[in-house]
Amino acid sequence: MKIGLVLGGGFARGAAQLGFLKGMFEAGFDRSEITLMSGSSIGGINALGVSLGKVDKLEELYRTLDIVSIGYLKKMLKNHFVKDLLDEIYTDEEKLQIPMYITGTCMSTVSTHYFYCGLDSEKEELDKKLNITVTFPFVNGVVRREFNKWYLDGGGTDNIPVYPFKYNEMDLVLILHCYPKYVPPHFMVYSNTVVIDVDIAARCSNGISTYSFDKKNLNEMIDIGYEYGKEFYNKVLCDRDLKAIKERGQQFIREEADIRKKKRVPLNAAVIFNKVQSSRKFE
């Protein structure tokens, strides 16, 4: 069975996403079952962790991270935070084990670019692409100049990068995002692919900040995400019968709908950017 994984952006909520993934892996989900991944913003970093099989290492980094202000984060990113992070989890000898797409917003054409990172991707190139996808405005610079183009954070125009799966057909696509009101795009809904979207932050209370990278906040999110990931795996992915997964997945979404309805949307800016993108009607 070909499984695709979409990891949406969400600033600090990426910690909950990582916890969710760890929960799924520990519950029995085999990483080698994933055929292709697509990540935007912090989801891109998580995708790299999954692709390299370094989820534990990444979790350790998240748990020790303690950024008390945006100014500090800005300083960290300016000082090659992504490069340092890559050095921590990725040596020159290592190669990606799962291909993935990294999203960037091209400012020159105001379009979304999905960079393909194949199994033979060079570290330098990967470094550039990851730097593009985490170009948080006014944090990692307003825009970045890479590949002779100006780029903005991938979440700017597509925070949940499902689009590459339009061209890469899968049997099952798991969309892990943090938009309570997210609805999968029509090209996925009308395709033969089984689509299950999970709001990984559904169990995080409204009091847990999306924009805070302080230690307590991150640890809390990882723990909540971990439990949620385990629960999701046991409820939905406990066997590999696609039809049963579809039914259980839909049941799971229905059960979660009430919780999601009560949630506040924490990513208003990203929602607006996504609306701008969809209004351009590129599809």
Binding site: C106, K149, Y163
Partner: peptide
């Protein structure tokens, strides 16, 4: 050729 995907106005792969 290179697997690049774009949702925009480009007519050929920018890379």
């Amino acid at each position: 050729k290179c697997g690049f995907v774009t949702r925009g106005i480009e007519e050929k792969c920018p890379y």
